[in-house]
Design a protein around this nucleic acid. Structure first.
Lengths: 332, 332
DNA sequence: TTGTATGCGTTATCAA
DNA sequence: TTGATAACGCATACAA
């Protein structure tokens, strides 16, 4: 158990004051090059690593970010979290994942993370009508909404263009000759699913198709409600020939429901999902889907947050909209 | 932007010294009940939260744990991480997830986490023949191996009884009348897959079946190698009627390969996986599998680690083996 | 049982 | 351009 080497040890070794070492560490510009070199030598020689704890006690900033999600075991979030963690680390930050289980009030979560001294928070779990978070935290911690955003907000956000995504899905289906297209939405409290729903409605009209309320499931999509819905619409005289599901996970349940009703995918019914989670590319599933471009989305939100934290006087765009991408596989 | 309320503010408000407040915070036993009450009142009144940073600068302990995984987007790890996070929080700890991408040397990772001042580390990514980690870190940080363990180690570990798991799988298949059972292993560098492989071999012999080398895939299981293997064995005269896959993810690819060869699951070929990841219960997949009892596994490893951190006196079991659980669904 | 004083390892302030 | 010195918020040895 070695003793920790501190800035003082380095100072002594280099023959300068601790303050000078600190300045070298923080890239303070006005240091005699020779002294700077001596200090750097000492740092290498002694294998010195600055103590982040001591550092943040005084700067009031930590090199850690909070990431708030509904459910980390949801593939969309686990896959984006992975990206978040690795990209954050590249910029010298760690990330503390906070999983609300879709239950906890965001207000508490933010206060909690604030007490944990995170320097910034990425929120992936906000509802459309959540109360405003602008003034919510005692200390002024930057917040970036990720993937979902509230209807009205002054905070920064990075989301996918979900309306456009639905339109792409329908465009693809129309091109394949479909005109009766059903839609299974997620919970309408989430901006993502709501926008996908809006986009669906708009596109149906734009393409001159008939908007049929009975082809839309707005209920909370459980395994059961999905099965029921699919059975019902497929048994109508004028049944849909394609089904759009608001998430890949729903779509996979739809696949099962369709085959239970003795229809083939894609011959009888085409199915399309959203998110491009990794299991969707499994050959057994091979689901056509709209991808979020997770990589881009993570990168931009992270850059936004870190810029906000480090405040480079930069011009930071308030609301970034990522274009969706159609990934065609075997279900359409 | 309120000013942070500190221990001094509380002291002033309660009419005591900062030291006394500190003592109350740390449950120091010899305090006059009335003073203690005053302090607690002040704490509530001022909404005081102790600054963990300042605290850990002195105690050299942080309330954060490191969790090292291969790939957090792998469902097994994202599901266990979720449990880890919530259970850790219940005990007042946060968790920093370190994703090695299956690449980085564990030694570097541990040193990195040590520099981040985590109080303990759960390692879920160790290989069978990794070098010893006992003496690896400068400061003495407790380590617990989770799910996988090295062949030889003096450190603590919590793993599933993987041999027994394979035997359960085979027992189940034998009971269903199967006697030709193929096995697709994962990478043999991992103790989990290796033990499952050993268990398979032992059980085949114990049940008086024939151990057929050509029914075993030991190669790194890629989508392609799995497809090839399945096609080959299913086209042999004496083809297997059941396939055990070392993970659910492999099993799902097997499902596809089987149907591509125009065989039905489970009528012609039974398939069984390991891990019970959440997608396996999707009705479209409905995979029979051996569950790890993640909840138990996480709980025990977390308790072990925190006991190691907090309680020097306790008798802590060195290597805990969790019994597997068979979950029968539609693929067998 | 309690208060005073000191120190944890840095950065910030000020004077030189 | 550099060095003393004082914070940061708390825990703890020591004194009382």
């Amino acid at each position: 158990m070695k003793k920790r080497v501190t800035i003082k040890d380095v100072a002594k070794y280099a023959g300068v004051s601790p303050a000078t070492v600190s300045r070298v560490l923080n890239n303070y510009p006005f240091i005699k090059p020779e002294k700077k070199m001596k200090v750097e030598e000492a740092i290498n020689e002694l294998n010195f690593e600055p103590n982040e704890i001591a550092r943040s006690l005084i700067t009031k900033k930590t090199k850690t970010l909070g990431l708030v999600v509904d459910d980390i075991s949801n593939p969309f979030f686990s896959e984006t979290s992975k990206l978040m963690i690795s990209k954050a680390r590249q910029r010298g930050y760690e990330v503390l994942i906070y999983d609300t289980n879709g239950e906890e009030e965001l207000k508490h979560t933010l206060q909690f993370l604030s007490n944990k001294n995170v320097s910034g928070i990425i929120v992936g779990s906000v509802l459309r009508f959540d109360q405003k978070h602008e003034e919510m935290i005692d200390e002024k911690i930057p917040i970036v909404y990720f993937n979902r955003k509230p209807e009205e907000t002054d905070l920064f956000s990075v989301t996918m263009d979900n309306k456009k995504a639905s339109k792409m899905a329908i465009g693809h289906l129309v091109q394949k000759g479909h005109s009766k297209i059903a839609f299974i939405g997620g919970m309408m409290e989430y901006s993502t699913y709501y926008s996908r729903y809006l986009g669906y409605c708009e596109a149906i009209i734009e393409f001159g198709l008939e908007l049929n309320e009975s082809f839309i499931l707005k209920e909370r999509p459980t395994s059961e409600s999905i099965q029921n819905f699919v059975s019902r619409v497929l048994n109508e005289d004028d049944r849909p020939t394609a089904i759009i599901a608001a998430t890949d996970q729903i779509a996979i349940t739809v696949l099962d429901a369709v085959s239970k009703n003795n229809y083939q995918v894609p011959a009888d019914v085409a199915v399309i999902g959203f998110d491009n989670i990794s299991i969707s590319s499994n050959p057994y599933i091979s689901l056509t889907t709209i991808s979020q471009q997770k990589n881009k989305m993570v990168e931009i939100s992270l850059n936004t947050l870190i810029d906000l934290i480090e405040d480079e006087e930069k011009e930071i765009p308030k609301h970034v909209l990522i274009p969706p991408k159609l990934i065609i596989r075997k279900t359409t």
